[in-house]
Design a protein around this nucleic acid. Structure first.
Length: 213
DNA sequence: CCTATGATGATCT
DNA sequence: GATCATCATAGGT
């Protein structure tokens, strides 16, 4: 490993590849979130791939809408959506412009700026829980829809950037079904994580909610 | 450890 | 009106 490579930003070309190549390759990378109070840095430990309009689990499955329009844009940009009335989730657009693929950032290990996250993550019982789950990750990093469409291949000090980091050995990368995805999308083993990492979120199968009476 | 359920509102049909 | 790429909490084992 070349000295200093860890803090080199990833390039646009890194994201302009098939999403199933990019997703596992994001593990171990460093996501830098620059806030007014200072930088927060997180080592990615769990992601999920969403493969554009061909993927029943993807927000783009039924075509372009106002919400998912960022997914149709250039790779390397942030797609942030609001869900369950309370939470935000952060994705990075992958593949060529117009394909609408992306990677959901599901969990990570906060290595810099943990103190800046704790007032938003009161319920975390230890630092491994600060970003253990996609909405927890977004909350810890103070990510909301104001960052939707932000270029994550930007200059240092921009709101979001992704550095080369220290990827794990390939034999430590595992994959399986995506969490919370039902229907035909549930069969695709497009969740990727670092084996044994304590910041990886527990798997939850999709559960259809019964409607209120 | 586990499972069940309420919270809460944007989005799409 | 139904669904939702979730989380925190309560209570049982």
């Amino acid at each position: 490993m070349i000295e200093g490579l860890e803090r080199t930003p990833l390039t646009r070309d890194f994201f302009d590849r098939p999403v199933l190549d990019v997703a596992p390759d994001l593990l171990g990378r460093t996501l830098v979130r620059t806030t007014p109070d200072g930088p927060i840095e997180l080592r990615l430990t769990e992601v999920e791939a969403y493969a554009g309009e061909i993927d029943p689990g993807s927000h783009a499955f039924r075509g372009r809408t106002p919400r998912n329009s960022v997914m149709y844009g250039p790779p390397g940009h942030a797609y942030v959506y609001f869900t369950y009335g309370m939470w935000h989730c952060l994705n990075l657009v992958c593949g060529p412009e117009g394909e609408a693929s992306g990677v959901l950032l599901r969990a990570g290990d906060i290595q810099v700026g943990a103190d800046l996250t704790r007032n938003r993550r009161i319920s975390a019982r230890n630092d491994k829980e600060l970003a253990k789950g996609p909405a927890r990750l977004a909350t810890a990093l103070d990510v909301d829809r104001a960052l939707n469409g932000t270029d994550a291949i930007a200059h240092p000090g921009a709101p979001l950037s992704v550095l080369h980091g220290t990827p794990p050995p390939r034999d430590q990368v595992r994959n399986g079904p995506r969490t919370g995805v039902g229907g035909d999308g549930a069969t695709h083993p497009w969740r990727f994580w670092i084996d044994g990492d304590p910041t990886v979120s527990p798997y939850r199968a999709h559960v259809p909610r019964r409607r209120a009476t």
